[in-house]
């Protein structure tokens, strides 16, 4: 049971962070399907910095520096999406897909390159990166938690306040609902959309690191982040683009995701199902839920439509 709670918390926070990121982007009017790629980039840069930090660095600094790097990498990478979809008015889905493909390739090149250098240039081409995650996790009673739990909860509160209690949040949402109206009262739609996408990069980057670090000690970048970015988008839709509901939806999906990690140590082994079946579950669950909730979708009205100042 404690294991189930541990993994649910890990995955729940990841899904929540990434879904919150996607939510900011969509509220500003940009569909960010590149969350998967942003997670990969955040994860790979965060990890590379973590393994390259000098041995004497204190654990607090290690955690802080790697998280900041992941967030910064996510922001920089998301800027590519913002530039293409806001300034060049490119198709947001295609641009996002390109970034997803590019992210996995980039991560593989960097990790293989790093492994090759570490082994003295012998041509070792391992896509796996090993790291030590002990600085990130600690125990509270019987339950193992990681720093991302606190980071995530803090960011959730900040997200709710920013989105609903500040002028910035209101303006951001206006740009996703009716950009022409927003522009007419003097809001710079382009700048707001840039902010929305960059925030999604920030949260997605942290989410990528939060997915990889706490659960394992070695990560194979061939699989990117195994579809978590896309699951997070389903979480966001299920959460109706509202941070509070997104948190609940993320926890709900995380239970399914966690089952794949722990099924063999619980009563579920009696069901005699393979690991793949459990891996499938969050995806099947999300499809069933989407099928029931899509009718009353509260998506931002102008999402996916490039804003053109001259258009009426």
């Amino acid at each position: 049971m404690t294991l189930l709670i541990k993994y649910t918390l890990i995955y729940g926070i990841v899904l929540m962070l990434v879904a919150l990121g996607a939510c900011f982007s969509e509220h500003s009017g940009i569909i960010n399907i590149a969350m998967e790629g942003i997670m990969v980039i955040g994860g790979v840069f965060g990890l590379l910095v973590l393994v390259m930090l000098p041995a004497g660095t204190s654990s607090f600094m290690k955690v802080l520096i790697s998280i900041c790097t992941a967030a910064a990498a996510g922001v920089v990478y998301s800027a590519l999406l913002a530039f293409a979809s806001i300034n060049l008015k490119a198709d947001q889905t295609i641009g996002g897909t390109a970034l997803n493909l590019l992210a996995t390739a980039l991560a593989l090149v960097l990790v293989k390159r790093y492994n090759n250098t570490m082994s003295g240039g012998t041509g070792t081409q391992s896509p796996k990166l090993s790291f030590v995650n002990s600085d990130f996790i600690f125990n509270i009673g019987p339950i193992t938690v990681n720093v991302f739990l606190f980071v995530g909860l803090a960011l959730l509160v900040i997200a709710i306040v920013v989105l609903y209690r500040t002028r910035f949040g209101m303006r951001l949402m206006a740009c996703g609902e009716h950009p022409q109206a927003a522009d007419s009262v003097g809001i710079n739609v382009y700048r707001m959309r840039w902010c929305g996408v960059l925030i999604s990069g920030f949260l997605g980057g942290i989410g990528g690191l939060a997915y990889i670090v706490p659960a394992v000690q070695v990560w194979n970048f061939e699989s990117g982040v195994t579809g978590m970015g896309f699951l997070a988008i389903a979480v966001m839709i299920f959460g109706q683009w509202k941070p509070g509901r997104i948190f609940l939806a993320a926890m709900f999906f995380a239970v399914f995701k966690a089952l794949a990690n722990i099924y063999d140590s619980t009563f579920l082994t009696a069901l005699n199902l393979t690991k793949e079946v459990y891996n499938m579950m969050p995806f099947i669950a999300s499809m069933i839920i989407l099928a029931f909730t899509s009718k009353n979708s509260r998506a931002p009205k102008a999402e996916g439509v490039p804003y053109d100042k001259g258009q009426r």
């Binding site: 590519l80 293409a84 060049l88 008015k89 490119a90 198709d91 295609i94 641009g95 897909t97 390109a98 970034l99 493909l101 590019l102 992210a103 996995t104 390739a105 980039l106 593989l108 090149v109 293989k112 390159r113 090759n116 081409q125």
Partner: peptide
């Protein structure tokens, strides 16, 4: 150089194709 650099190039190409 790892072979995935080819994927990086094709990724850049689709990104450009988007606009």
């Amino acid at each position: 150089f790892p072979g995935e650099i080819a994927d990086v190039v094709s990724g850049i190409i689709i990104y450009l194709c988007a606009f």
